[in-house]
Simulated assay, not measured.
Amino acid sequence: DRDGNVYVIERDAHRIVKLTPKLDKFLMQLGTTNEKGNDATRFNLPSGIAILRNGNIVVTDGYGNNRVVLFDKNGKFIKQVGKGAGGPQDKGTGPGEWNLPHKLAVDADENLYIIDREGHRLEVFDKNLNYIREIRNDWNPWDVNISRKGTDGIGWIADHKDERVLKFSLKDGKILAVWGKQGWGPGEFDWVHGIVVDSKGAVYAADTYGQRIQKFAPSGSASTAASK
């Protein structure tokens, strides 16, 4: 968050914990440890998180449930978005419905770009979880990130469909640049699952089965790779 606190998703324990910047003190927990559910106090395999400027917390509760949940900065439940109760069987294709809400990113206006992973789309909401629109393209997005400034209208997708990284327009989803393919070489991926952009425009892509993180210079060339 803006104070440097760290939020850790413990997916299989069905909870999220908040820690101090030095990771030496527990501050808060969302969810009930080892209890799955789809109410105000329980998750079912949560998948992603974003922190807003006022401290409010947005959680994609997607590996087990099909909902996105908004909490205040103290962890109090505010609202959720999803079909029906947002449970495991509550899949949908309409506005504000999900088939595995996965990861999310926030732009400079605090609009939320949320991946509907098995729906192969992004759904866009305002900071109060009011639906705005959807973005579709020929992709299967697994993660999304927005440049640090957040004002240039550019986003980045970790695309599982063709194992690649995409640069795209937040306005209309138009793909602006592409790199990567299936493989274990430089600039190749085997289940590209996470993506982050730093303040200088470098892109970091997490490669699940390649067991590494690759860094790409703003030009798109692979510059470094860190692995196990």
Rank of each mutant, 00 (worst) to 15 (best):
I157V: 15
W184K: 14
V165I: 14
G173L: 00
L166C: 07
L176V: 06
L166F: 09
K171V: 08
L176S: 03
A158D: 02
K171I: 03
D159R: 06
G187D: 06
D172Q: 08
G185Y: 08
S169N: 12
K161G: 02
K181Y: 13
G173H: 07
K161Q: 10
W156I: 00
K174W: 09
K171F: 10
L176Q: 11
R164T: 10
A177R: 12
D172C: 04
D172H: 01
I157K: 04
K181C: 13
A177Q: 15
V178R: 14
P186D: 15
F168D: 01
I175H: 04
G183S: 07
R164E: 11
G155C: 03
K171L: 14
L176A: 07
G185C: 08
L166Y: 04
K167W: 03
L170H: 03
S169F: 05
H160Y: 10
R164G: 03
Q182I: 08
A177K: 15
W184N: 14
G173R: 04
K174P: 02
V178C: 12
K167M: 15
A177V: 06
D162R: 08
A177E: 11
F168L: 08
F168A: 11
G180F: 04
G173P: 10
L170A: 03
K181D: 15
G180K: 06
W179Y: 12
K161E: 09
H160P: 00
G180S: 10
W179I: 10
G173E: 04
G183K: 02
G183C: 08
G180T: 08
G180N: 07
P186G: 12
V178K: 15
F168H: 05
K167V: 12
I175Y: 00
L166W: 07
V178Q: 15
E163S: 14
R164D: 06
I175G: 05
G155P: 09
K171S: 11
D159E: 12
L170Q: 02
K174T: 15
I157A: 05
S169G: 03
W179A: 01
